[in-house]
Amino acid sequence: MQGLHKEWEAEAAPRTCAIEDYQGAAARWCPGCGDHAVLNAVQRLARDKQLPPEKTVCVSGIGCSSRFPHYMATYGFHGLHGRAFPVACGVRSRRPDLHMFVVTGDGDCCAIGTAHWIHTIRYNMDLTILLLDNNIYGLTKNQTSPTTRTGEKSNTHPRGNVLPPLNPLSVTLGVTNASFVAQTVDWNPPHLYNTIRAAYEHKGTSFVRILQRCPHFTSHIFAEAQSDMSQCLLLLDDNGIPLDPALQRLFPNRAAHNPHDLANARAVATREDVYPVGLLYRDENAARYDRQTSQGLGRSQAEKIAATEKWLSKYEI
């Protein structure tokens, strides 16, 4: 507040953040890219939750989707290809006060960053991971990704991908200590928003795979699903992703699914006839590594010196 005495600031009108307060540089993704929808949803969520921008950190790797932090007006960390997860874990380790989003793509997470993906799920620190999965490498111009379907042609497989795609949901559900696994689609903004919101509210690592189109290289892959809602299977439960009943009815295929049922979550995750959308799995009691790493925060300098002196003295002769 300009002109106001510093000390009075706290007593001035309570701070309200508008959507603009979360908007960074103008997004430079291609028109029609699914990333825009995710960005809008996260900015809305930040506004709705009134997250202080200075207390919010978006961490990403490299790829189209990893430009995400630049388009937020919060703190951000645009890192290295595949390495968003260890950075995010490092940030979280000593900063339980921050609100954290990790944005990654199918190449970033499921190829070059696979080791970190597995272990970050296991660490279960409080992170909201958004996997923006468009089945292709976009930034480097049309190469096969681990989630590219069999037969899809790309610059690296001009005669078509020979391997079946990796399933990020079943991989994540296979990791010990997974605590929140959901799937949503970029073309259904209410479900997208509600899923990210539930993921944010979950305490622990929430993993959200977002199916989305790359208008440039994979515009065809979800085109049918977009026009034909029956290709999705909406997962419903009181503990699942809430969705307005009117919107629920737009999904011809709906199924009750208890997100605490890991076996069924794995079964649903591997269905090939439909795209399951909703919360597949949640375990509120999974061990949280960040509870350990932040335990010693707030020691005074005198306490630190005393502790070091204690250890130093063990070596005294």
Partner: peptide
């Protein structure tokens, strides 16, 4: 002294974690 040792999943994650912190 209020700190901790993080044993990372690999050498890359070890430095990435330290940089994040």
């Amino acid at each position: 002294a209020g700190g901790f040792v993080h044993q990372a999943e690999d050498e890359i994650a070890a430095i990435g974690f330290a940089i994040g912190a």
